[in-house]
């Protein structure tokens, strides 16, 4: 708004070096990682002052572990949001994914591969459904994915009343093994992040995603098959949710109908993506920022836990942090729009 409504920007006469610094700091990806660092330092100081220990091995492991599920889902969400869409069905899909994984596995190691394939197939189907409803039926993504989420929810509630299935022993190692202080699942997260980063930055598909999210009409006029791009983004998102569901199943040891909804992954993942500097309207942002956003949320959570803050009050603080962070971005963006 500010950028568009400003009259033609006058050539600003400013000292170039601080300006460049300021612009680099205004880049949300840098900003969010600095914020993550700041929150960690602040948390460390506060916890130490109050007589606790913050940077202990179990604590670091806990923070990293907390990053994984939300991180995987938020990475998928980044893809759809960048493309100018949205996915509100991720929470129910994650729940259903854990159930399918645990039921297919039924506690035996031999069923591990079929279970993984079954979950990915389910997610492929749901992603296709989301994408087709959005692109073919022209239903707004908000309503389309909300509707698909409701369909999944009904399916879950009709078939499951509590935890079901059993995850095999060796598969649970995905949830619990660690190398030093780093859980192995973090490598999964990093691998997915790298793959998506490569897709976004180095492939034609990724450029098409940015183009479609930035201005769908212009993208189509330039020859981008926008519908297919949106469809693929939805499928990638659902597959990320599937991987998250596999991780959650490994953590819980069984399928849980509330795995996704209890942690509110739908809204939390969107919050993490926006915290990471990706614009809700699409076209700007990226994977690295999202990881930063997830880290900030996980570190904050850990700090709140260490300080024994009331879990309900934690939500209040989290809401304030999210609004404040995005307000800071909006401010930086406006200023950047003004200076150049």
């Amino acid at each position: 708004m500010a950028a568009a409504s400003e009259p033609a920007p006058l050539p600003a006469v400013r000292p170039p070096v601080p300006d460049r610094w300021r612009r680099r700091l205004a880049d949300p990806t840098v900003g969010i990682w600095l914020a993550a660092l700041g929150v960690t330092l602040l948390g460390w100081i506060v916890v130490t002052v109050r007589g606790g220990e913050f940077l202990t091995q179990p604590n670091i492991t806990g923070i990293l572990q907390n990053c994984v599920a939300l991180g995987l889902i938020a990475l998928g969400q980044t893809m759809v949001i960048l493309t100018g869409s949205l996915d509100l069905s991720v929470a129910y899909l994650a729940s259903l994914g854990t159930l399918v994984a645990a039921e297919t596995m039924a506690g035996s190691d031999g069923n591990m591969v079929p279970a993984v394939l079954a979950v990915l197939a389910l997610c492929l189907g749901v992603g296709l459904a989301n994408g087709l409803v959005v692109t073919r039926l022209k239903v707004n993504a908000f309503i389309a994915t909300l509707g698909v989420g409701l369909i999944l929810r009904g399916w879950i509630e009709d078939n499951y009343t509590g935890p079901a299935g059993e995850v095999s022993r060796s598969f649970q190692r995905l949830g619990y093994d660690r190398i030093g202080p780093v859980p192995v699942s973090v490598f999964l997260l990093v691998a997915v992040a790298l793959a998506l980063w490569f897709v976004l930055r180095r492939t034609r598909l990724g450029h098409h995603m940015y183009a479609t999210g930035g201005d769908e009409h212009a993208a189509r006029l330039s020859g981008v098959r926008t519908e297919r791009t949106v469809l693929i983004a939805h499928v990638l998102c659902a597959l990320c949710v599937g991987i998250a569901a596999l991780f959650l199943a490994a953590r819980f040891g069984a399928g849980s109908p509330w795995a996704g909804t209890e942690a509110r992954y739908d809204l939390e993942s969107i919050a993490a993506v926006v915290l990471g500097g990706t614009i809700l309207a699409g076209g700007r942002g990226g994977v690295l920022g999202t990881l930063g956003g997830v880290t900030v949320l996980a570190v904050l959570d850990s700090v709140f836990n260490q300080l024994a803050i009331d879990p309900f009050f934690k939500n209040v603080l989290r809401g304030v942090v999210i609004i404040a962070a995005v307000a800071v971005y909006a401010r930086g963006r406006r200023r950047a729009g003004r200076t150049g």
Partner: peptide, 10 residues
């Protein structure tokens, strides 16, 4: 340019 500030995913 207008998009970011008008908010909302749509």
């Amino acid at each position: 340019k207008e998009n970011p500030s008008t908010g909302g995913p749509t």
